[in-house]
Design a protein around this nucleic acid. Structure first.
Lengths: 185, 185
DNA sequence: AAATTTACGTCAGTCATATTGACTTAATTC
DNA sequence: GAATTAAGTCAATATGACTGACGTAAATTT
C-alpha cells in the first residue's frame, strides 16, 4: 500500500554536488532555504489526499469528485457559481464531475426558492455518508499526527495554515471554514 | 492575482442543511470531524504551490516540471529510477517532462561513472538558479506564516507534517529531507 | 561464458482533469 | 424593455498521468 521504494537513494545521490560554481559565494544565499518544510509539505499532503483516493476509486471517482463532494456536503444549498469560486475551476471542468455525481445519486440539484435560475447543490443521504466516510479517513491521519504533539499544537497548525493563505483571501476562507476555534490573532 | 471571488457565499449557502435525516442521532458521529483543518490544508497547499506556478508558466512548465527540478536540484546525481520512486510516477510520465527540462537546458544528464547504464541527473547553472528562485518564493510564504507564531512553532509543524506520513515511509523521507533539525521523537 | 537482472528509453493507446471562447436559455434586475 | 446573471453546452486543446509491452546496453549472478 505505502509503496515507498527509495531503494538506493543514498548511494545513488552523490551528495558532493557536481554543479559548477562561478564564484565561491554563489552558495551563500541558499544556505537558509527551508527545504525540509517544503518537502515535508509535499509528502504530507500527498499522503493526506491519498487515503480518500483509494475509496473513491471504487466509485470510479477521482480527486476532483472528492473536492466537489466535500464542499457541497459542507455547504448544503451552495450555488454552482460559488462552488466554482471556491474550487477555482471552470464551469466545464465542474460540469462533467458534477454530472457524474448527480448520476450516481451522490449529489442532488434543486431549483432555487427565490431565484429559479439557480441549481442549488445538496448531498443525498448516500452522498453525505460517503463524504463523512472520507472525512473520517482524513481525521484518523490528522489525529495520529497530532496525538504526539504538545497541547495547543493544533492551534498553532491552524494559524500556520491560515497565514499561508494570502491576506486578502483569508477573510473569505475563514467564513467558509467557519472554524469552531479562535483563529483571530 | 488572488482571484478569490466567493461573492454571495453566505447568502447562497443556506446553512439550515436540508438533508434528510432518518433518525435524529444520525448527526452525532460527525460533530467532531476536523473540517477546519482539512479545508485549511487544502487552501494553504493550493496557495503554496501557486507561487511557483506563475513563474514556471513563463517557461511553459507546469507543476510536474517543478517537482522534477526540485528533487534533482536537491539530489544532484540522482538516478532516474530513484526519482521515479520519490515522485511515484511512471517512466513515461517522467520521460516527457524530463525531456523538456533537458531541451531547455535546465537539467543535464551524465553517464554514471561506475555504471554506464545510468543517466545521472543534475541541474545546470540556469536550472539551479530557477530552482532557487522558486524555493525563495515558497520561503517567503512560509516565513510570513511562521513569523506570527510562538517560538518553536516550526518544530511543531515539522513534526506534524512528518507524522502525517505513514510510519513505514518516514525513515526514507527523513533521509531524503535530511533536515538540519531534530525530528526524532 | 552464459543467463539473468537492472537501468533506461520508447511505442501505442488511454484517461482524468483542466483550459479557452463562444453561444444559448431562462430568469432576474435595472 | 434592456441588461445582467445563473447555468448549461459545444468544440477544440493541453497537461499530466496511466498500462503494457518491447528493446538495448550494461552489470551482476550463476
Amino acid at each position: 500500500m505505502t509503496d515507498v521504494n527509495f531503494k538506493s537513494m543514498i548511494s545513488s545521490a552523490a551528495q558532493d554536488g557536481n554543479r559548477l560554481m562561478k564564484d565561491s559565494t554563489a552558495q551563500s544565499d541558499e544556505i537558509d532555504l527551508p527545504y525540509d518544510l517544503i518537502e515535508l509539505l509535499f509528502f504530507a499532503y500527498r499522503e493526506f489526499t491519498g487515503d480518500p483516493d483509494d475509496v473513491l476509486a471504487e466509485y470510479d471517482f477521482g480527486r476532483a469528485h472528492h473536492r466537489v463532494l466535500h464542499f457541497v456536503d459542507r455547504n448544503p444549498g451552495i450555488m454552482v457559481t460559488d462552488l466554482l469560486g471556491i474550487l477555482r475551476i471552470t464551469k466545464q471542468s465542474l460540469g462533467r464531475v458534477l454530472k457524474q455525481l448527480v448520476d450516481a445519486e451522490i449529489i442532488e440539484q434543486r431549483e432555487g426558492h427565490h431565484d429559479r435560475r439557480q441549481r442549488l447543490l445538496y448531498t443525498t443521504e448516500r452522498g453525505h455518508a460517503l463524504a463523512v466516510d472520507l472525512t473520517k479517513l482524513q481525521q484518523k491521519r490528522l489525529e495520529r499526527a497530532l496525538i504526539e504533539l504538545p497541547d495547543g499544537s493544533d492551534e498553532i497548525i491552524r494559524k500556520f495554515l491560515l497565514q499561508m493563505i494570502d491576506p486578502d483571501a483569508r477573510a473569505d476562507i475563514l467564513k467558509l471554514v467557519r472554524s469552531a476555534y479562535d483563529l483571530s490573532d
